[in-house]
């Protein structure tokens, strides 16, 4: 894949689903009237007998997926993150997770970066909602290729998985990484001054920020925490030992998401560097283009660079 080619994680998901479906006959896909938006339409076209539309009824869809999984099918349930994690929370919590069912929830259009549909459709709480549920695995891939690998890992894994995808097209940043291990973060860049722990759409922003900081003689490490649960605790402790400060970056509320998970991990660690969180600051989003929203809600590489300057100056 070309380095310059932009690809949305939901597009990669739709493509890979068809590929996996060719070999894995137990794969079934469910939609709640959003097959086009979630890109499951391709699977539906190739394998109509293994595609089930629940109509606009996300709760029922989760229940149907639960039932299918008990007979050995591997249901991929896809809808917008706001509905997967919000609307159907009780079904995800009390049926799918509680019974530890082999259901894969692929939630698209997460975060404020989903754009113009506005705050009612921008899920800024789903990482928090999903990671607090026992048995649940939470994955947020950084780009198209990682989405494909993560999807395969999620399907191989036995148990419930929540996979968080986005709408915008993203640059490829994981081309040099061949494997995807659930719960094992990828250190994309080593650093000595600051460690940026990030996931999803913010990974490429963090890499860009690290590049700028490097030109200013600030060595920033970048950790792609693609799995938020189970969290790679060791890599966080390593970052705490090797750098002066930690910065987390996510297109999610600063409450309950990746930043909170990192803070929880460090709360009783021996070495506790200051942790600065980049994220949506406990407000609802609004309509706008992805770029406009990322700027307004301070989710860009510039915001990361500014934050690093601010913390390092304060520490000095």
């Amino acid at each position: 894949m070309s380095l310059n080619k932009l690809i949305a994680t939901r597009d990669a998901f739709g493509e890979e689903l068809v590929e996996i479906g060719k070999k894995n006959k137990n794969l079934v896909v469910l939609s709640a009237d959003l097959a086009k938006s979630t890109r499951t339409i391709e699977f539906a076209t190739v394998f109509p007998e293994r595609f089930f539309n629940a109509g606009v009824a996300e709760q029922n869809m989760m229940g149907i997926a639960a039932g299918l999984s008990t007979s050995g099918f591997v249901p991929i349930v896809s809808t917008l993150a706001i509905f997967a994690a919000g609307r159907a929370y009780d079904q995800v919590r009390n049926t799918i997770a509680h019974s530890r069912l082999n259901v894969k929830i692929v939630a698209t259009h997460s975060g404020v970066s989903m754009g113009k549909d506005g705050s009612s459709h921008q899920s800024i709480e789903d990482i928090a909602l999903m990671r607090v549920i026992p048995h649940m695995v939470v994955i947020s891939p950084a780009d198209g290729p990682e989405t494909k690998k993560a999807l395969r890992s999620a399907i191989e894994y036995e148990g419930p998985v929540y996979m968080r995808l986005g709408r915008p097209e993203l640059p490829v940043v994981t081309q040099h990484i061949n494997s995807f291990n659930i719960g094992k973060a990828d250190v994309l860049q080593e650093g000595t001054d600051v460690s940026i722990i990030t996931c999803g759409i913010m990974v490429h922003q963090a890499l860009k920020a690290a590049e700028i900081l490097s030109s200013q003689n600030i060595r920033a490490g970048v950790i792609n925490m693609h799995t938020i649960k189970p969290l790679d605790v060791e890599v966080i402790h390593q970052a705490a030992r090797s750098t002066l400060v930690i910065l987390t970056a996510e297109d999610h509320s600063i409450i309950g998401g990746l930043g909170s998970a990192v803070l929880e991990t460090l709360s009783c660690a021996n070495i506790r560097p200051p942790v600065y969180r980049i994220g949506v600051r406990d407000v609802f989003g609004e309509s706008g283009s992805t770029d406009q929203l990322m700027k307004k809600y301070e989710l860009t590489w510039e915001n990361i660079v500014q934050a690093v300057h601010k913390i390092l100056n304060r520490n000095n």
């Binding site: 709760q59 639960a66 039932g67 009780d90 069912l101």
Partner: peptide, 18 residues
């Protein structure tokens, strides 16, 4: 399958029937 929260059984039954 675990139950307790009401209104979950019939959707699950649909999945099993399919």
């Amino acid at each position: 399958i675990s139950t307790g929260s009401l209104g979950h059984g019939l959707p699950i039954a649909i999945g099993m029937a399919i």
